[in-house]
Design a protein around this nucleic acid. Structure first.
Lengths: 197, 197, 197, 197
DNA sequence: GATGAATGAGGCTTCATTCAT
DNA sequence: GATGAATGAAGCCTCATTCAT
């Protein structure tokens, strides 16, 4: 167990760690690299964290907690399927804006981490995630607002991936705000990129 | 120096290596793990390959060579923008079908590998790739077949990601053939998932 | 899991490790020190053993296995209490002769190791040990061959410790053979060091 | 340099330290563990002591000083050999009663500590110790009160070990007083555990 | 007297790689 | 073609110790 160091310092260190994990991959990142980046010695990190893995854990769980705060609010709002998708996509881009590094890490590492008991919550989250999106899409098909001629699981993956891969190129403070990017993505996903005839 | 081992054995070993790299990540994969999988000792792999890195290199370059064979044929065919996109997407899903592991590795590792001189061809390929797709999209906007109200670079990333992330869940021999998946993806990308009113 | 390296080499390495553990204490012994002693690099030990702890484990369990081989033979022989004690003491000094280092380690480390699940067999062995010795002593008191005016548990500890601490000064190949030492110890334990009046 | 802390606090801290050293071994004990036990942070101990080693030093030297106070009084009393042995044994059990932890530490660590200059007094003490006990035993053999048919050095080790290992199981405040334990031990050592025929 | 944060040395372990057989 | 044994560099982590506050 680690001492209850000042929360600001912890965040600072975690942000740096997340940035490096996202850039180089968790395994390829050395503890020393993180320490260099924050200007301390590798061993000193262990005053603040139990292990490299616990940093990763805290980065991912913090992100997921915030994500689900947002998602749950959306899902509880009683919107129609199309509006729900729109709200979820917008919320997702906001999370990418705020937790870009965490999202990137999540995408690279989630699959193999989920096997470890410590990261079991990743698998749980993935299930909840699928339920929320897939359910909304199914409701939309039933309501006649989404196309019924497409394989629904394929559609699910399409929409899901479409949004989250954006974390791999998104840079906060770029040309477009998260909301603007969400608007364009939604327009593409919902209406396609082809001109209507 | 690598001895003149039989090409079939090489392929076999590389396939195994690719599978493990894809599942666990390149850095997290030990040479011993690959050796276990093929039923030999770690040291014995060095009869066939110079290094772990050279296995990765061969996996990625083989894949890219084949990919560009297919792409170049498409690009040389003189098709219209929409037909070109359709052909590229279909070709891409065929490559995913044939080189699933390589594609997954590519997506996880390309970014940080591209910095190393040995993997400079990854950056080259990425540029060629962007030129081909972005050019086709621009031609399509000019021709009035693709929407002009969207940020073209955003569209490019959208289409690109939409196709390649599929490698993360695609399993050869599944329900849908690559061509069928391509058809559905194209339908979504081009026309959207919303019902037209 | 470690490769099934040649048993001779293993024994050689374990003997050296035991010697150093006995001399400096397990915790105070560095893996490098052991490696130096056998003329290899620290990391190379891991080709033969999983960990420093697994060396300790193998040293102790090998010793205990042999010890109980001998003890069980004695206990199954159906001797009277006094003869049983004599045989156990003699057997013990033979074990000290053969496994001096292991015995010394056992005495220094057993108490706190027994808490760890991996070394649970130490606690088991201690119980069997107590049962064998204490039982024999009790039988002897009942039979009237051992004094009844002494606290029996105190007697047990007296005899037990008296024998095993010898490992701390015993050097194989010294003046006295194990059997000769056993004879003298037995004479002291049974008849005392005072001249009879 | 150590500040002039209150002597009571020092003792308190040293007692705790001794207890932990005895239970886990000196090397395996972390300064932090001791600090936890006394309810402060690891760094804070350095207000009271120069180093971990100086705690050990103070524990052992305090114990040895007291031990020799008692021993010297006994040795100066001009008793006969048998009475001297009886008095030394009794005094030893009193020391075990008062300094159980220190005695346990002494037994586990003395051998390898004695090499370091700082702990040279351990070797000195051991020599004085041997001289006192061995001398008394030799006097007893010469006087005809101790058996002459035993190897005298073996007898010395036998008596010495027999007493001091008791520290490994002795718990102050147990069933028997130190004096009672001494009486029983003496009875066994002097007269043996066998019934006389 | 004590805390919080850090240092720096060193420990255990992993792993790509080599090479004699 | 493959094995067994080893190297050497590097990685994660621990811990005694220091010091400004």
């Amino acid at each position: 167990m680690t001492a209850p160091a000042s929360p600001e310092r912890r965040s600072e260190l975690l942000n740096t760690a997340a940035e490096v994990f996202a850039a180089q991959g968790y395994n390829a990142t050395t503890v020393r690299r993180i320490a260099d980046e924050v200007g301390m010695l590798a061993g000193s990190l262990y005053y603040h964290f139990d292990s490299k893995e616990s940093m990763l854990d805290e980065i991912l769980s913090t992100f997921l907690t915030e994500l689900w705060d947002g998602y749950d609010t959306v899902l509880a709002a009683g919107l129609g399927p199309r509006e729900t998708i729109e709200a979820l996509v917008t919320e997702s881009f906001r999370e990418i804006d705020r937790h870009r590094a965490a999202v990137a890490i999540y995408q690279k590492e989630a699959r193999h981490l989920a096997d470890q008991p410590r990261f079991g919550y990743l698998a749980d989250s993935q299930q909840k995630f699928e339920k929320a999106w897939l359910g909304t899409l199914e409701r939309g098909v039933a309501d006649g607002v989404f196309r019924a001629d497409l394989d629904i699981r394929l559609t699910y993956r399409f929409v899901r991936d479409t949004v989250w891969v954006a974390a791999s190129w998104y840079r906060p403070g770029g040309l477009h705000s998260p909301e603007e990017i969400a608007r364009q993505y939604l327009s593409m996903v919902l209406d396609g990129i082809a001109v209507r005839v």
